[in-house]
């Protein structure tokens, strides 16, 4: 049974809260008692999608585990802006080691907690590992794959903003094709990031046939919280991939973060779905299908596609990716008969 949107309650489950819903139907974020795992005073840029996504996800995990959890953090924006020694914004048990080893550290923490539990020293404490796309899809990928393959009892959350943002916006393997970064400048016959083969880690996680894989965006809080809560009902390796727009790296206004994630989903460029043991079990349907141009045009990293002579071929190739996602992940509502 997947997340059931509530209809006809003015805003239903589209908004963060809704006074018309019964208390048990409300979101964690609407609660005055939410953990605020990532507290005020952090140094993320204005309108940071990752800061928002991390609080959404970790608050939901804290709620699901009744605060019995440990967070393991890879190096990256999230760690740098939240924890400049000796200050931290984290209000959860939190550990940071290196850039590439978050999955391995989480495996170790999980093993240690298992021993403590067996010895009766502690109760059932769960482990959540988190990192950006650089620490997950590039540098930490070996550790992550190992964690999946061993089916260690860890929920790994990747906040995907499509590049190495705090070091100056370099390309990662999650950077979308044609996007400008510091290392993929809009010059030459194929400006921006080359199309390549792509590396969609949720699909790779599914190939490991781990208990649970899901994607989410910061624009759909209720869907995100549902997926974190559901992930905590499984034992073994779980993976959630959250799209988090980066105003700095994408070249968007700081108030457009949610709009950009909404557009990524509504165009089909970012498929939102769930899979269990390697099989697709549910996809969040597109509400109002839009052409990819709607998503690309507001972003300065794609500005070179919309110059004096628009790069129609490149836009068409990006549209083809969206179309394929829509087919592959079944993103459209079936026509009502």
């Amino acid at each position: 049974m997947s997340f059931q949107p509530v209809k006809f309650y003015q805003t239903g489950t589209f908004t963060v809260g809704n006074r018309l819903l019964a208390p048990d139907q409300r979101s964690v974020q609407a609660n005055m008692e939410r953990t605020n795992s990532l507290n005020s005073g952090h140094r993320a840029c204005q309108g940071c999608g990752e800061a928002l996504g991390a609080r959404y996800a970790i608050d939901a995990a804290m709620h699901a585990t009744d605060k019995q959890m440990v967070a393991v953090n890879a190096t990256g924006c999230l760690e740098v802006f939240s924890t400049p020694y000796p200050e931290t914004s984290w209000q959860v048990p939190w550990i940071h080691s290196l850039f590439g080893n978050a999955a391995a550290v989480a495996t170790g923490v999980s093993a240690a907690l298992k021993v403590k539990r067996q010895k009766g020293v502690s109760g059932d404490v769960r482990v959540v590992a988190q990192g950006g796309d650089g620490g997950t899809t590039d540098i930490g990928f070996g550790c992550l794959s190992g964690m999946f393959e061993r089916n260690d009892d860890v929920l790994y959350i990747c906040y995907d903003n499509g590049g190495y943002m705090n070091t100056g916006i370099q390309r990662s393997s999650a950077t979308p094709p044609a996007a400008r970064t510091a290392t993929t400048m809009p010059v030459g016959p194929e400006p921006g990031n080359p199309f390549g083969q792509g590396k969609f880690v949720p699909a790779i996680a599914m190939a490991h046939e781990i208990p649970y894989v899901a994607t989410a965006t910061v624009a759909d809080l209720r869907d995100l919280e549902y997926k974190v809560r559901k992930a905590m009902t499984f034992r073994g390796a779980r993976y959630i991939h959250i799209l988090v727009p980066c105003p700095l790296g994408w070249g968007t206004a700081s108030d457009e973060t949610l709009r950009m994630s909404r557009l990524a989903k509504e165009t089909g460029l970012f498929p939102v779905f769930e899979a269990e043991r390697g099989e697709l079990t549910h996809s969040t349907k597109i509400r109002r299908l839009l052409p990819v141009e709607e998503y690309l045009r507001p972003q300065k990293r794609f500005a070179h596609l919309f110059g004096k002579t628009p790069a129609v071929d490149t836009i068409a190739r990006l549209q083809a990716i969206a179309d394929k996602n829509i087919r592959k992940y079944d993103l459209l509502e079936k026509e009502a008969n």
């Binding site: 003015q10 805003t11 908004t15 963060v16 809260g17 809704n18 006074r19 979101s27 974020q29 609407a30 605020n36 990532l38 507290n39 005020s40 952090h42 993320a44 309108g47 940071c48 999608g49 800061a51 928002l52 609080r55 809080l221 973060t257 949610l258």
Partner: peptide, 15 residues
């Protein structure tokens, strides 16, 4: 305002 909690939720800074 009709208390949808959106501002409370979407603030990346808990402000």
């Amino acid at each position: 305002c009709f208390e949808c909690d959106n501002c409370y939720g979407v603030c990346p800074d808990n402000a």
